[in-house]
Amino acid sequence: MLITGIKSKPVYAPLQTDTRGRYHLMLAMGAGAAPLLRVIAEMRVVAGPSLKNTRVLFVSDAAAPEVEQFKAATVADLQTFPSTPALLERFRAILQKSLMGTRLYVAGPESFIGLAMKIALEFNLNKDEIRAEECGTLARRVYCIHCRATTEDVRTNIVSCIGCGRWLLVRDHYSRRLAAYMGVMVDAEAPGELPPLKEVFL
């Protein structure tokens, strides 16, 4: 019940270069490096060897093979971060100083995209300024509508809320403002009666 058919579930398309932008800010996590490298190669065809207005922020350890690939692609400004929160903090600081004409590219798991989008929204970036591609895990951030805690990295159809311990059904109803899917108490009517636990968001 309630798992599919809800319109707010975000849909992503493969990343594409937006040559109308003047500055290109790219964020990636894990497997998200591949789409970014593809976009950078595409941009090079149009822009030639100089990619001076292109910046990449990447969640990964500095020794990851993708780091070498970004360097080989001569991205002038590449920064790696040990965690998503560290990257997002830097991202926010960059947006504070960014100018109109900036395009944002985000690639990685949906939860990563959601968190980046939430910040982009605060800066009034519209759909025509953002490109996002989902890759990697489908694990969800789940917001408990009862206690308002957010449970991270949820891979199952139901989950015990990190805040109040209630068993929540993970819905397809997505909030861009919260960057999370809604979780609703699953056994409200018949306490203790739970549907079988299944791994669904891998």
Binding site: Y23, M100, K127, D128
Partner: peptide
């Protein structure tokens, strides 16, 4: 547009 502004702005 030449400064990179998207139409929505």
């Amino acid at each position: 547009q030449s400064c990179g502004w998207p139409d929505s702005h």
